[in-house]
């Protein structure tokens, strides 16, 4: 079964190339607006999704956005990066079938929620938003999209390990399927040629410590965002909250319980503003 799961990664469609191209262009300071507009409009599905999300209160534009040109001009660079990543990622979440969640929308909602939470925490501990963190947080559970059918078939076995033997859900996946959803997500990120930091954020989002001495903060922040979303009930599905709490994730950033509670309040407000983003899947 493990071999079959790993082989399936090769047949996953490429991540929309236009997203990579947009990222390259957008981070050049001297880009020409019409070039960027043309590049985005080249992909119809991304264009449609951007237009659906652009007027969301979450992105906070004071101008009504009706065209991609408006979006490029009024959203601001950071928001534009986030919205393009979101539009590009969403296509992979439409056909989630069983396993972790009964509706595709639930896994998408969790993914967007973790992305939003990651920026709340980034503001708090890094004093800035972070597009690499956003991408890793948004796609942290991409492994679940493709592991879902195997988890569905093995659910009683995994749940027995969790309920009876003190396994986390992740450890249960690994024991029964030979691979867990974070590890598989890392392979998919590799298949998509994602930058190293994004891939690590996905692959280590439950076990940031396993990254060893490397000093990337992204896996820790994705981890923390994911745990907080589970606690608020915006969860990833049947696995519920059956994951390990790592105290180090707080001490590392000098965060206290009260900081987490405050972040949850901020997050809750933002999630309500992001309804249009949730609704694209």
């Amino acid at each position: 079964m493990l071999e079959k799961i790993i082989q399936s990664v090769d047949s996953i469609p490429a991540f929309p190339l236009v997203v990579h191209k947009i990222m390259l262009l957008i981070t050049r300071e001297d880009y020409v607006v019409t070039d960027l507009v043309k590049l985005i409009e080249y992909d119809q599905s991304i264009t449609a999704n951007i237009l659906k999300m652009s007027n969301s209160a979450y992105f906070g534009s004071r101008h009504k956005i009706k065209t991609i040109h408006d979006a490029v001009v009024y959203l601001g660079q950071q928001n534009l990066i986030h919205i393009v990543q979101t539009a590009g990622a969403s296509r992979f979440y439409r056909k989630v079938s069983g396993g972790y969640v009964s509706h595709a929308h639930d896994l998408w909602k969790h993914s967007v929620a973790v992305a939003i939470m990651s920026q709340v925490l980034a503001q708090k501990v890094l004093q800035r938003v972070d597009p690499t963190l956003y991408a890793a947080a948004l796609l942290h559970d991409i492994g679940k999209v493709f592991l879902g059918e195997y988890v569905r078939d093995s659910l009683p076995k995994i749940e027995e390990l969790v309920e009876q033997n003190g396994y986390s859900f992740l450890e249960g996946e690994k024991e029964i399927l030979g691979i867990d959803h974070a590890e598989l997500g890392g392979m998919i990120a590799l298949h998509w040629n994602f930058p190293e930091e994004t891939r690590e954020g996905i692959a280590y989002h439950h076990q940031p410590r396993s990254l060893g001495s490397k000093e990337s903060l992204i896996p820790w922040l994705v981890y923390l965002s994911d745990q907080l979303c589970m606690m608020v009930g915006v969860d990833g599905g049947v696995d519920g909250l059956a994951y390990r709490g790592l105290e180090e994730s707080l001490t590392r950033f000098n965060l206290r319980g009260k900081d987490l509670e405050k972040s949850i309040i901020t997050f809750h407000d933002l999630l309500l503003e992001a309804e249009d983003v949730l609704n694209i899947v």
């Binding site: 909250l241 059956a242 390990r244 709490g245 319980g257 949850i264």
Partner: peptide
Amino acid sequence: GASILDDAQFFRIGQK
């Protein structure tokens, strides 16, 4: 009031 596993003192919103 659910908790994540090994709910260390820092993560105990459910318990609180």
